[in-house]
Amino acid sequence: MADRLMLHYFPGNTPLHHWDARCKFPGLMIVTLSLLQMDVPSLVLFTLVFFAAFGVARLPGRALLLSGKPWLLFLAIIFIVQVFFQHPSFWDLPHVKAAGIVCWRLALMLAYAILFTLVTKPREMQDAITWFLRPLPFLPARRIAMMVSLTVKFLPLLLDQFAEVQLAVKSRMGNRSGRSLRHIKTLCLPLFRRSFIRCDELALALAARGYREDLPLTLPRIRLFHVLALLLVGVVALAGALLN
């Protein structure tokens, strides 16, 4: 396995790890919603809150770096495009500032989503989604929760497999053919083939463990201080909105 920890759970024994996923989900939603309209002062506040939360979760900085690394180049491209191609009179300070704010906002959204997945067990995420969807009639809540959890699981897996296939192609000098279409084909087909085999193994493993959708969901009542923590997130979001 490659060393990608993107959107992986990182075990721990901290308040953030123990915070009920049924409160963590709305918390993440509040944060991403409020980040959309934020300017510099509120972005500073949310950055400070993020580092405080990261400290509380006692996560190694390496976990954040490894999770965020694939997106660094991508954020850099967004910045360059925003600065050089969005405005006819590029490279003046207001445009650079605007591009910087867009990237800062995106980076924070990503950071909070990464933090959420680092401190939430896939099982808890699945149970929380089932719990939220259960009141809605005609929706297979458990199946949807399982599929969302699988989708999140597949994201780092696909990156891993892409890195492995790329390495295999390089070791066979496949990247020196000069024919880019052929190169794409040699990368894509093995990647898909490996992914499909992995899917098959996963489905058989689920069947072997007797996966059922009709089992009742037994979750404890949400404790008061978990709800209070969610309210605190709401207060911080409100403070951020007032700072704008």
């Binding site: 991508f74 969302v148 989708t151 999140v152 994201l155 696909l158 499909f196 959708e213």
Partner: peptide
């Protein structure tokens, strides 16, 4: 649950992840 349905479920999740990967490769013009 039949294995075929489980397979379809896992494949659909894989495709959802691929669509997400497709969203990461993006050029923000306009």
């Amino acid at each position: 649950m039949p294995v075929k349905q489980l397979q379809s479920m896992v494949y659909a999740s894989l495709m959802a992840a691929l669509i997400a990967m497709g969203a990461y490769i993006h050029i923000p013009l306009g």
